[in-house]
Amino acid sequence: MSNAEQHLEHLAEMRSLMERSTRFLSLSGLSGVWAGLCALFGAAYHRMVTEAEYLNQYADILVEKSEKASRDGFEVALISTALTVLIAALAGGWFFTARKARQRGERVWDASSRRLLWALALPLITGGIFCLALLYWRLVGLLAPATLVFYGLALFNGSKYTLRDVGSLGLLEIALGLSGMFVPGYGLELWAIGFGVLHILYGAWMYVKYDGGLLDLRRWTCARGN
């Protein structure tokens, strides 16, 4: 091997070390796909519940039950659906990412993943409290766009410490959320696009790009064909 080739090899290795020591690269595309599916199911479920709730409310007014009681019921249902979706998405996301880390021989919990989580946490916690304030002031219409905006900010912030593609996903979420603030009445639809469709698209794209997803798929179809 010539001297130049050796230097080139060293440079490639140094580059990889710099990446690996600062970025958490085991983030799995499947985590995104899973989170997207959870969001779509959650949104569909919420749509069903609110439609039933609407009929109930009508019945409540007929029997002169207070409007406030049914509104509280709506908020409890909204928050519990949202929490269930969040927990399911995080648990599945953790599962796929931990699996990928194992396959790559890396640890899930190390300096780079801690840094990533911290970068995500600050905008997310701020956004969470902001949304509680929206609920408190009954500005329910701004809830869905606000979650999108803060989630987008968190992703953009976190993209410094993980796969770069996460940054453009963050920008899309922010754009979606901001436009939702001026178009009232489509909160759930925007939310389903932002957390559902975009997650699935990005997750699938990242799965193909970084996880060798296409190879897996080809192997899988070959195995089934035989």
Partner: peptide, 14 residues
């Protein structure tokens, strides 16, 4: 030496 280059690479970005 490649290991020393490696050490400096990691320390220069952390």
């Amino acid at each position: 030496h490649r290991n020393r280059l490696g050490i400096m690479s990691v320390l220069s970005v952390n």
